[in-house]
Simulated assay, not measured.
Amino acid sequence: MKRPLLATLFTLLACTGLRAQNPIIRDVFTADPAPLVYRDTLFLYTGHDTASVQETNYKMPDWRIYSTTDMVHWKSYGTRLSPRTFAWATGDAYAAQCVEHKGKFYWFVATFHKKNDQSQGGAAIGVAVSDRPTGPFKDALGKALIVNEMTKDLPHAWDDIDPTVFVDDDKQVYLYWGNGSCKWVKLKDNMTELAGPITTFTPKNYIEGPWVYKRKKLYYLVYASSGTKPEMIEYCTASSAAGPWTYRGIIQGNVPNSFTTHPGIADYKGKSYFFYHNGALPTGGSYRRSICVDELRYNADGSIQPIVQTTKGVGLAK
């Protein structure tokens, strides 16, 4: 082989990079992905499915953390938080999101509340805090931030789940959540107190799992939807974090072997990524889910192109 041709081949190999395999976490069943980019690392906060193959309900005892610097190799930090961290909590570890604010890391979680003088039970939202993205985390408030009694628009007891937190350019913090309807409220700068009334609205086909972020001058509300059964992912946009929100359409169809899916979106090293879960691993299913990631692409007008679900996953060029 001539030397110029050999050099060209080496250059091509170096630029190709590695690609992951979807699902990206394969040793345990994970769900409800929430990415966080901090410095040069992408951290992924997840739920953890432990139901047996025969069981027909969720068994989610804790939350876990992973990280990557190349979108291919994922470091596991294991279990880093559970409902047992919160003295007021009981039940499973539902969808959660961790955000950085003024040098601290706030992990907003959904679980259930014990019956006591603060709540008669039902789903609730708590917040844990740490000085590092991987913990250790502790209860930041000593009580739930949101309890079932604070939202009365729907009769069921599990409507206060799936928190997502967005910090706007002016540093105002917004909390969004909800099953059956989407609710939002401003938070004070300490991240543990409400700074105004709770507002409720219902985007088209909304079920649960909101994810809010801003790109350029456009705000995005992405969520699990009832466009068909099982769930899909749809989205709205707005010119303000408070809305009003304009419906923009479906961006992800049904996923393999799971009637739920859940969005998490992050920009990392020049690309945008869409995290979700399916039931594609061996013995997987709706209660034994696994997290995947594919590229997210935008049109010139800011609209989101349909997500192409792959088995090859993504990777950064070397």
Score class of each variant (00 low, 15 high):
residue 250 I to A: 15
residue 282 P to R: 07
residue 258 S to A: 15
residue 285 G to I: 11
residue 272 S to P: 08
residue 256 P to S: 13
residue 230 P to K: 02
residue 221 L to Q: 00
residue 255 V to I: 04
residue 233 I to V: 15
residue 233 I to G: 02
residue 268 Y to M: 08
residue 251 I to R: 02
residue 211 W to M: 09
residue 275 F to T: 02
residue 227 G to S: 15
residue 286 S to Q: 09
residue 287 Y to F: 11
residue 269 K to E: 11
residue 258 S to P: 06
residue 227 G to M: 11
residue 287 Y to N: 13
residue 260 T to E: 08
residue 222 V to T: 14
residue 219 Y to H: 04
residue 249 G to F: 06
residue 277 H to S: 03
residue 221 L to A: 00
residue 270 G to H: 11
residue 266 A to T: 08
residue 286 S to F: 06
residue 224 A to S: 11
residue 267 D to M: 14
residue 282 P to V: 08
residue 217 K to H: 14
residue 280 A to W: 12
residue 276 Y to L: 09
residue 258 S to H: 01
residue 259 F to V: 09
residue 285 G to E: 03
residue 221 L to N: 00
residue 244 P to R: 05
residue 250 I to F: 12
residue 209 G to L: 03
residue 260 T to K: 15
residue 248 R to Q: 15
residue 288 R to Q: 10
residue 228 T to M: 10
residue 237 T to S: 05
residue 271 K to H: 13
residue 275 F to Q: 01
residue 257 N to F: 03
residue 220 Y to Q: 03
residue 229 K to V: 14
residue 231 E to N: 11
residue 276 Y to R: 08
residue 209 G to E: 09
residue 287 Y to C: 10
residue 282 P to S: 12
residue 277 H to V: 12
residue 226 S to G: 12
residue 270 G to P: 04
residue 259 F to H: 09
residue 274 F to W: 10
residue 223 Y to V: 12
residue 230 P to Q: 02
residue 252 Q to Y: 10
residue 291 I to D: 07
residue 269 K to F: 04
residue 275 F to A: 01
residue 220 Y to D: 03
residue 231 E to P: 15
residue 265 I to P: 00
residue 281 L to V: 10
residue 255 V to Q: 06
residue 214 K to L: 08
residue 211 W to A: 11
residue 291 I to W: 04
residue 241 A to F: 00
residue 282 P to E: 10
residue 247 Y to M: 08
residue 217 K to I: 14
residue 280 A to M: 15
residue 272 S to E: 08
residue 260 T to M: 09
residue 265 I to G: 03
residue 232 M to S: 12
residue 218 L to A: 10
residue 236 C to Q: 07
residue 270 G to Y: 13
residue 222 V to L: 13
residue 282 P to A: 13
residue 280 A to K: 14
residue 273 Y to K: 08
residue 226 S to N: 14
residue 287 Y to G: 07
residue 277 H to Q: 08
residue 230 P to V: 07
residue 286 S to A: 15
residue 227 G to T: 07
residue 276 Y to I: 05
residue 286 S to H: 07
residue 218 L to G: 04
residue 242 A to M: 14
residue 258 S to C: 13
residue 257 N to S: 13
residue 259 F to T: 08
residue 212 V to R: 01
residue 210 P to L: 03
residue 236 C to A: 03
residue 238 A to M: 05
residue 233 I to N: 02
residue 249 G to C: 04
residue 235 Y to Q: 03
residue 245 W to E: 01
residue 247 Y to V: 01
residue 274 F to E: 01
residue 255 V to R: 04
residue 251 I to S: 01
residue 257 N to P: 02
residue 262 H to P: 11
residue 278 N to W: 08
residue 257 N to D: 09
residue 267 D to T: 10
residue 275 F to P: 02
residue 263 P to G: 10
residue 211 W to Q: 09
residue 235 Y to I: 04
